[in-house]
């Protein structure tokens, strides 16, 4: 008897670029999920024609041709100033700076801090996977206490390296009126998509800077299997990095 297979095309966001799929991330990587949430948010807001997607260096650069939108890939840490430059010169553009925790909190920290302080009308989307993944798993500002990486092989210690950077908390502390700051996780996709959508809406409204950190998985460098990966994301990272909204535009209107 002839067996019938139902062929179903994977449901990708419309704003994704079909020709460049499947994407280039490792199996189990969180980037694909973050970018799916971003794609859905772009679709729902209907702003594909206005997007300039600026990606940083690190694994995030693999997304340089992921969307069916215009985009620029820049140097490590420099996505924020490039997006700022475009936005300042073309206020109608919707500029997204996409980066990792190293790009945002280490090499490009001065750009993140000052773009926040100036309340630049751009959206920063940052993947936090607690390590420098593209370069082979070194310690990042977000590496958890006790977590082993290539440059802290005996585990990160508070004494030597300080406490892991809490990005959204830092950004929220200096963000101005009308800014939006949140942290989501790839294990809560609905929440993450909603946060990214609110961030983009904040830029569309022109009310202020918008920032979303997404907790992401990195089984390749964590050296974890599927179960351990999810455990680390939800339990270890979840215990230190609280998800939720840290600043909302309407809160300051009062």
């Amino acid at each position: 008897m002839k067996k019938e297979y139902i062929v179903d095309t994977p449901r990708m966001p419309v704003s994704w670029r079909e020709e460049t799929k499947a994407h280039k991330f490792c199996p189990g990587c969180g980037h694909g999920l973050i970018l799916k949430a971003l794609g859905q948010a772009i679709d729902e807001l209907g702003i594909q024609d206005r997007i300039v997607f600026v990606c940083d260096i690190g694994c995030c650069l693999l997304a340089w041709d992921l969307f069916n939108t215009d985009g620029v890939q820049t140097h490590h840490g420099r996505a924020v100033p490039v997006a700022t430059g475009v936005k300042r010169a073309n206020p109608d553009s919707i500029c997204i700076a996409y980066m990792g925790d190293g790009g945002g909190y280490a090499i490009g920290a001065q750009h993140l801090v000052n773009a926040t302080a100036r309340n630049e009308r751009i959206t920063v989307l940052l993947a936090n996977n607690t390590n420098y993944a593209m370069t082979g798993g070194q310690m990042a500002p977000t590496t958890l206490i006790g977590q082993k990486t290539e440059t802290c092989p005996y585990g990160r210690s508070i004494e030597q390296h300080g406490e892991p950077t809490r990005g959204p908390e830092m950004v929220a502390a200096i963000a101005g009126h009308g800014a939006y700051v949140a942290r989501g996780t790839v294990s809560q996709m609905n929440q993450l998509k909603k946060q990214i959508k609110t961030a983009l809406q904040t830029q569309l409204d022109g009310s202020g800077f918008s920032f979303v950190e997404a907790l992401a998985t990195c089984p390749t460098n964590w050296r974890t299997n599927a179960h351990e990966t999810w455990q680390f994301l939800n339990n270890n990272m979840g215990a230190y990095f609280q998800t939720g909204e840290f600043k909302k535009p309407e809160e300051q209107e009062v």
């Binding site: 820049t74 420099r78 100033p81 430059g85 300042r88 010169a89 001065q110």
Partner: peptide, 17 residues
């Protein structure tokens, strides 16, 4: 900008626009 690194890269942004 916050430094010359940023001034250079924002200039690129302006050109891109």
């Amino acid at each position: 900008t916050e430094d010359e690194t940023s001034a250079g890269f924002t200039t690129l942004g302006g050109v891109l626009a």
